[in-house]
Design a protein around this nucleic acid. Structure first.
Lengths: 356, 356
DNA sequence: GCGATCAACTGATACGTATTGAGGCGGCAG
DNA sequence: CTGCCGCCTCAATACGTATCAGTTGATCGC
């Protein structure tokens, strides 16, 4: 927070002096005059003075007057750059960046506060205020932070679905419910009679959506609610061969996995089954309710992809609409996912005794 | 540039009112008091009021007072995100981002103006002013823009080497001279007697450095200046089979290629020689004076890599030193490259008639 | 000929903060 | 009682801009 030194930059006052007009007139020439007329001659003189002195508008002063500064903040609740998550987040960034550029906005990355320990309100102040509005991204967002932002009436758009009690917020989220439902119906049609949904432990809305989709699908397909098991995973370490074997012994023939950013659960599952000689999909079908681990020569995971670049673009579009007042209330956008037809699910193995 | 609406955020004045003190005291409590004493009790009350009202400092007002806002700008003269250049620029970004985060700075990407048509001074104002200082990146930078920035005394660090007449600027650049020189000496030692340097057409400093290194190396190795040919390439389209054959007929046995960001020249060269049945390195040795195209199963290009992540970090470090006044004059940093020992150069083919 | 309209401009003000010289107050030496 | 000092707090000001309510002349209608 040191003070800048060095030769000061010319201000509108100096332009005015040189052009023989008032500072107000300079401002009028620079911005739309909004009805106030300025003669062509004056306009010329002002522009000449600007040229001569190399004037550049001071964004801080502008912002202080309450104007927007054409800057969109991008706040990621997890670090964007670690390599393991790079491929997950990069497409979002790409979309955000492209659309921001297209609309003439600069992009402010909040890198100084994006660790878990700090929040939006780190250091006692809302770092986001440096931008006109903000795109928020990340699974481990603090619900308190979101609520505060809503309360402060700070314009933002969340990428992903998130709800906060008593507050309406804008988001762009993938529709997980519909494709999950479809997948469950398909599995039941393939003869599966006992399914397992493996959720992430964080209890966030995307997980709820998957569960909702699963239940709806089960109901539509006539599968008893008791035959849709739900378990939780906190990452790679608690997916063990014993656990998977337990599922199979319990009559589970298909597993629906909710992916995490690094897809540790999915990778672990693939590893564990391979090591234990459990064949996919012969012994057990596996599908990812979202992004799957990278395909290999022999394995394409059945899953669905979210249109991440487009989501980034849509988030920026929405945010700019909020900033411009074109959209005056929070709004939620659901975008469809695309199915990935893989080879990790198949007809259920020969009928087994389903323990009651 | 619309005006923000909605409920206003609390200001220091309101904090002061609630705490029963003056606005000045609030400011003193928030920032270092610089010798001015504030009683512990007052401090408590102010903090309580801040807590109660959810106060957040207004960055614009701060900036207007001439304070820094802990924001580093990143201006790329080419678009960063096209996939073909992604791998080239990404490591720089990585380094810049990491170091900025470490030092508590946010990162402002100037996406709105980074097309060739606009410059730093697009729209009549210096967009960079939104940040405390700036890291500049890209080959096709406008020298005028740089000169203007120096004249304005705007703090910036260029990644890459760039000189401007009569102005000293800070940069972090790879040392191309030394490894180029080494490579030329090595080639001569391998029996090559006529070398070709294929420069990018832009005539930028990195190209000059490569030529300087080549000439120095040739001289040191005792190669006549006339046997170091220099040609220019503007990209992929002017690297043709005829041209390469011409080189060989002219007695050239080794080509030193100055890479571009997308390495179009290099890719074209590989393609053209393959199609024409010209073997590398048997018929002609090829080395890249910088980053080479991606290695394949059979081909590792002899080249040298610049430590791009570290350069990004170093640029931010340097910039912050300039901002903090630790470093008060422009300074230039040269960083060493690392050799990549590939299989694209070898002993010169059997002696040929070298036409005079 | 006189109020009314209009074009062209300006003075004044507010935005929210950091800084500084000055002021209030209690105590203490002379 | 006077003068002084140390401790704490405050009023005032500047930063550069956008905006709005005037203030000029000049033109116009009747």
């Amino acid at each position: 927070m040191r003070k800048r030194v060095g030769p000061r930059r010319p201000t509108q006052v100096e332009i005015a002096r040189r052009a023989g007009v008032s500072q107000a007139t300079v401002s009028l020439v620079l911005n739309g005059t909004d009805g106030v007329p300025v003669s062509e001659q004056t306009r010329q003189r002002v522009h000449q003075a600007i040229e001569d002195l190399g004037y550049a508008v001071n964004p801080a002063a502008r912002a202080l007057r309450g104007m927007t500064v054409k800057t969109i903040g991008l706040y990621t609740f997890e670090s964007v750059f670690p390599v393991d998550q790079r491929d997950f987040y990069y497409p979002f960034l790409l979309g955000v960046e492209e659309e921001a550029a297209r609309l003439g906005y600069d992009l402010l990355l909040f890198t100084s506060a994006n660790t878990a320990r700090d929040g939006v309100y780190a250091r006692g102040h809302n770092a986001l205020l440096k931008a006109d509005g903000c795109v928020l991204l990340g699974r481990h967002i603090s619900r308190d932070d979101l609520a505060n932002l809503v309360r402060e009436d700070f314009p933002f758009v969340f990428i992903g679905r998130r709800t906060v009690d008593g507050a309406e917020l804008s988001y762009v989220a993938p529709d997980y419910v519909a494709p999950t439902r479809g997948l469950v119906e398909e599995l039941v049609a393939l003869g599966h009679r006992r399914l397992l949904l493996l959720r992430q432990i964080d209890g966030a809305e995307p997980g709820e959506d998957r569960e909702l989709g699963s239940r709806t699908g089960a109901q539509a397909a006539g599968l008893p609610a008791a035959d849709l098991l739900v378990e939780f995973s906190s990452g790679a370490e608690d997916v063990t061969a014993e656990r998977v074997s337990g599922w199979i012994r319990a009559g589970v023939t298909a597993v629906l996995v909710e992916p995490s950013e690094d897809n540790a659960t999915g990778v672990a599952l693939a590893e564990v089954t391979r090591a234990a000689g459990i064949r996919i999909p012969d012994d057990i079908s596996v599908a990812f309710l979202g992004s799957a681990p990278a395909p290999t020569a022999t394995r394409i995971w059945t899953s669905f992809e979210l249109p991440r670049v487009e989501m980034g673009r849509a988030a920026v579009d929405l945010l700019v609409k909020l900033l411009d007042g074109v959209q005056d209330r929070p709004i939620q956008l659901l975008v469809p996912c695309t199915d990935v037809r893989g080879n990790s699910i198949s007809r259920a193995p020969r009928a087994q005794v389903t323990p009651r």
